[in-house]
């Protein structure tokens, strides 16, 4: 028995590099050889889908890109799926970014979806206004006067010449705001300085880490639903069209499972040790 026990104790004191290797393999294998586990939709994801679905056809939606390369795997699938849902319902999309790298992200996604997949017209069906520095001050700024902040789009067309921007002078003129956010400035700032003060409906997709910071606003009704991390993205894809997030979910599942397994091993070892000490 003693030998058995010491084995259990050792299971709680593995070298961290061993943990690294196991996690690495757990992510790599399912990516190479997918299992295809089914995705279950959570209510908050359904809320996002419904909120976007209920925007009257032909509305103008502001989609803000607040993420960068480091959080792309989580948010980009959401961005792609969101654009598909919006374009399916003939909404017009005005993209902007509070993060400088957000503009790279939006350019990439719009090129792929709006231009190649849907063949839509720049300046009529969608436009990318790009990034302006100043964090929440940008939101405050466009709440007062959008054209003072954005006089032209990223292709240097003056905003006055863009049909899609006709009649849009402040953030209040948008029918819906969608924030794709990986941190500050992001969803919380959109709630604070635009959605709340002016009563504009908004919804959001955030990284898993952001969820806890944002969830009170969702429950407070200030945000309609939330896409939480990659699993949120996969659930959303499930409602619109399958994409990358769905493909990645197997690896996510296996990795989570292994981490929990490690935690359990650590605790068995801890309890055995504690009993030894008290005995």
């Amino acid at each position: 028995m003693a030998g058995n026990n010491s084995f259990l104790v050792k299971m709680g004191q593995l070298d961290r590099r061993l943990v690294f290797v196991v996690i690495g393999i757990a992510v790599f294998l399912p990516l190479k050889f997918p299992i295809g586990l089914a995705v279950v939709t959570t209510p908050t994801t359904q809320d996002v889908f419904n909120a976007v679905d209920s925007i009257p056809e032909g509305s103008t939606v502001l989609v803000s890109f607040e993420y960068g390369p480091s959080t792309r795997p989580e948010i980009e699938p959401m961005a792609i799926t969101l654009l598909r849902q919006l374009f399916n319902e003939k909404q017009k999309v005005v993209a902007m970014a509070l993060w400088p790298d957000g503009q790279f992200m939006s350019t990439r996604v719009l090129e792929r979806i709006a231009d190649k997949e849907y063949g839509l017209k720049w300046g009529v069906d969608y436009v990318n206004l790009g990034y302006r520095p100043g964090q929440e001050a940008v939101i405050k700024g466009i709440a007062k006067d959008l054209r003072a902040n954005y006089n032209s789009d990223v292709r240097n067309n003056p905003v006055e010449d863009l049909p899609i921007m006709d009649g849009i002078y402040t953030v209040k003129d948008f029918d819906f705001i969608f924030s794709l956010s990986a941190g500050y400035p992001g969803t919380v700032e959109w709630v604070l300085y635009a959605a709340d003060p002016y009563g504009i409906p908004m919804s959001t997709g955030v990284t898993a880490i952001q969820v806890n910071e944002v969830i009170p606003y969702v429950k407070g009704g200030q945000i309609k639903g939330i896409l939480a991390g990659m699993s949120g993205a996969a659930e959303y894809e499930n409602l619109v069209k399958a994409g990358d997030a769905t493909r990645f979910m197997d690896a996510q599942s296996v990795a989570h499972f292994l981490i929990v397994l490690f935690i359990i091993l650590g605790n068995i070892s801890y309890l055995v040790q504690r009993r030894k000490q008290t005995a």
Partner: peptide, 16 residues
């Protein structure tokens, strides 16, 4: 109530 902003107007304007 349903709120309409000028944005939707402009959008439709083009089509019409």
């Amino acid at each position: 109530r349903k709120r309409f902003g000028p944005s939707r107007l402009s959008a439709a304007f083009l089509l019409l």
